[in-house]
Simulated assay, not measured.
Amino acid sequence: MSSSVSNLEGQSLLGEMSSFEKGGFFDLGHPLLNRIVESFVKAAGIGAIQAVSREAYFTAVDGLDSNSGIPREISSSKKYRFPGLKGETNRNSLEAMVKNTGKESLQWGLAAGVYSGLTYGLQDARGAHDWKNSAVAGAITGVALALTSDDSSHEQIVQCAITGAAISTAANLLTGIF
């Protein structure tokens, strides 16, 4: 057995994950494309986990509310659930969960890919990595996220742009402090 084969067999999950951080799984021929795709895939996975875990939580909370006698209309958990999950049949609920998990994964991936690509591109174009790159990338990412919303208004788009710029600028400025 060659040493490369035995090395692959002995590699742990932790080793594989650390190599993902260093070199990545993708080689699309350009560092910008690699960064965008890797950010998209990582964040989309996180979005899917978050969406499914949120649904599991609210399903559990709804079960507790029905056991404690609190009327469903008063329960605050109902407004945060996936819109298609009403519990008519397991098939309808599963289809709604898959659809909404996919949408949320796409939104998380879009945000990460756009932000990562913009910060990398701006750094390359300007020759500097500073708060200005973060502010522009955050604002554009906020607009992209607002446009994926079901009911995006002019005010919501502006608010998301300002919020994205503020959060990414603050994160950039606080990076050296913590």
Results as ranks from 00 to 15, higher is better:
D150G: 10
S105G: 08
A171T: 06
E16G: 08
L147Y: 11
K78P: 01
L106I: 10
D62P: 03
S39N: 15
V158L: 10
S134V: 00
K132T: 05
V143I: 11
R35Y: 05
S76C: 11
L110K: 08
G127E: 07
G69I: 00
V5I: 14
E88I: 04
G63M: 05
S168H: 00
E104R: 02
A96V: 05
I49Q: 15
K86I: 08
L13D: 03
Y120Q: 02
S68N: 13
A128W: 01
S18L: 12
S39W: 08
S149G: 07
T148F: 15
I70Y: 06
I157A: 05
A96F: 08
S168Y: 00
T169E: 01
V158R: 07
S39K: 03
T163W: 06
E9K: 13
Y115R: 01
L8P: 09
G23A: 15
T59E: 10
A171P: 00
L173S: 13
A43Q: 14
D151W: 12
G117P: 00
A111N: 13
E21L: 09
Y80I: 04
H30K: 07
F40P: 08
G47F: 01
T169F: 02
K99M: 05
S75Q: 12
I46Q: 10
T119P: 00
K78V: 10
K78H: 08
A170H: 01
E73P: 05
A125L: 14
P31N: 06
N133L: 00
A43S: 10
I140R: 01
N7A: 15
G176N: 07
R81F: 02
N34C: 12
V158Q: 07
L145I: 04
V5K: 08
S53N: 11
P71R: 14
V136C: 05
S116M: 04
S75P: 06
L145K: 09
A43R: 01
M17N: 02
